[in-house]
């Protein structure tokens, strides 16, 4: 049964995949062409002076475009590590939202919790300073 609510949620899912890919592609182009100029600085870093979990992801992506993995890891190790999985998962999510039958992912009960804990841990640890935590901060 396809109720009106389900159809509406489906449309929201589909358009979100479009917007997400648009952000990735346009953001990637902006990063490569002129990161310092066109991409806004991190609001959290500007306001608090601390690093957010995503700080350095722009530098990391630019470094990856240049196949410079060490520089990418120095900028934001979490984004580099999560990127292949996130892209693959986003591709599957997109296919699923547009009606294709794809293998189920993220079915494990505690995966959202683990993701949240990892991100928050990365957030805290990279702000501690001193070895080895400074390796997690953009440097």
């Amino acid at each position: 049964m396809r109720s009106a609510v389900a159809v509406r949620a489906n449309a929201a899912e589909r358009w979100l995949t479009v917007v997400a890919w648009g952000v990735l592609v346009v953001g990637g182009l902006l990063l490569v062409t002129g990161r310092d100029r066109f991409v806004p600085p991190c609001a959290f870093r500007t306001l608090s002076g601390l690093f957010c979990p995503g700080c350095g992801s722009g530098r990391a992506l630019v470094a990856l475009f240049r196949f410079d993995l060490p520089a990418a890891l120095r900028a934001n190790a979490l984004v580099v590590g999560a990127l292949p999985f996130t892209l693959a998962a986003l591709a599957l999510e997109t296919a699923s939202a547009w009606g294709f039958t794809v293998p189920r992912i993220g079915g494990w009960r505690h995966s959202p919790t683990v993701v949240l804990v990892v991100i928050i841990a990365f957030w805290v640890l990279r702000n501690l300073g001193g070895w080895p935590w400074e390796l997690l901060a953009p440097h």
Binding site: L24, P53, T86, A89, S96, V115
Partner: peptide, 18 residues
């Protein structure tokens, strides 16, 4: 089989990091 109730975890991760 497709997931019946999605948790939209991927989108939330993307939103968090990007």
């Amino acid at each position: 089989q497709p997931a019946p109730i999605k948790n939209h975890l991927v989108m939330a991760i993307l939103a968090t990091l990007c």
